[in-house]
Simulated scan of single mutants.
Amino acid sequence: MIDLHEIIASTRDYNFHSHTQFCDGRETMAAMVQQAISCGMKHYGFSPHSPIPLPSPCNMSALSVDEYVAEFNRLKELYDGRINLYLSMEIDFLGDKWGASDPYFDTVPLDYRLSSVHFISSPDGTEVDVDGRPGQFKGKMETYFDNDIRYVVDSFYERTLQMIEKGGFHMLGHFDKIGFNASSFSPGIEDEPWYRRHIDDVIDAVRDTDIIVEINTKAYPAPVGASAEEVAGYVSRLFPSPNVIRRLVSAGIPLAVNSDAHYSSRITAGREEALAIIDGK
């Protein structure tokens, strides 16, 4: 395993969260490396959505892991001396069913482990991906959760706390990601005291570990090349939100700015804005 703390303390020319052709990314690993070099990155990590024990169009297949590792090794050798490349996965936490501490991940030569919550259990036990676009989320709210947004948010943060307690990973991915869809479904929800208590609970839990919290810039700003209509309806934000970032800084929790890039053009999107908030500007 690499020392993420040392790298993040020594430079800001890094990105440890990205997706390519091996999951739901839109470009090849080679294209991402080339762009990262052009952007002046010194450290770049690949983190495809890990295999999980249930069907998902966004997650990589366990059958493609060997191919992923082989392509990584090829690129690492090819670009040796120009950029430091790292093998990782964004590992979904599914409660007792799956997570970064599962023995499976000891069989893959990962340099670090990034762990995130995308799925929560519906009342009938179905694992539901609550990420994605607001329109899709609205449909899932009706189909799986009887439009009970409190249940969804509570479940998301309960699972996040379980993930932190169980451990086995080094970096926590976009821990308030549910706020995006929850705010679209119920505007103002993130300002409600009960929601803010969830944020406080996560901060308290992380404070007692050596986990690095990711500042995810994927949704900031609107994608380059987006149409006027798309830009008009685009919600530009960071995960966690600026106020939460400031609370993390005050708590002394180590932070890493990652783009969660699915396109090479997004590798540095929102980076300066996130770093400015960390710096108190």
Rank of each mutant, 00 (worst) to 15 (best):
I2M: 15
T11F: 01
T11V: 04
R12T: 11
N15T: 03
F16C: 09
H17W: 04
H17C: 06
T20P: 01
G25Q: 04
G25E: 04
G25A: 08
R26C: 07
E27W: 00
A31N: 12
A31R: 10
V33Q: 11
Q34N: 10
Y44I: 02
F46I: 09
F46G: 03
H49V: 02
P55S: 01
P55V: 07
P55C: 03
P55L: 09
C58A: 11
N59P: 03
M60F: 06
A62F: 14
L63G: 00
S64F: 07
S64G: 00
Y68S: 01
Y68F: 15
E77Q: 14
R82S: 11
Y86V: 06
Y86I: 10
M89L: 15
E90M: 09
I91F: 10
D92W: 08
L94T: 03
G99W: 14
S101Y: 14
S101P: 03
S101N: 14
T107Q: 14
P109C: 13
D111H: 15
H118P: 08
V130Q: 00
D131R: 00
G132Q: 09
R133P: 05
P134H: 04
F137V: 05
F137C: 02
T143C: 04
D146I: 00
D148Y: 15
I149G: 06
I149Y: 15
R150L: 01
F156W: 13
F156P: 04
Y157H: 13
Y157C: 06
E158N: 14
I164P: 05
G167M: 11
H170R: 11
H170F: 03
M171T: 01
F175N: 04
F175P: 11
D176S: 11
D176I: 05
I178P: 08
S184D: 14
F185V: 02
S186K: 03
G188H: 01
D191F: 13
P193N: 06
Y195Q: 00
Y195S: 00
Y195G: 00
H198V: 02
V202L: 03
A205W: 02
V206C: 04
D210N: 11
I212N: 03
V213H: 02
T217A: 06
K218G: 02
K218A: 13
A219C: 10
Y220T: 09
A222V: 11
P223I: 04
V224M: 08
A226F: 00
E229R: 12
Y234T: 12
S236L: 02
S236D: 03
L238R: 10
L238W: 10
F239V: 00
P240W: 14
P240F: 12
P242D: 05
L248F: 09
G252Q: 13
P254K: 06
D260Y: 05
D260H: 05
S265G: 02
I267A: 07
I267K: 05
G270K: 05
G270S: 10
E272C: 07
A276Q: 14
I277P: 10
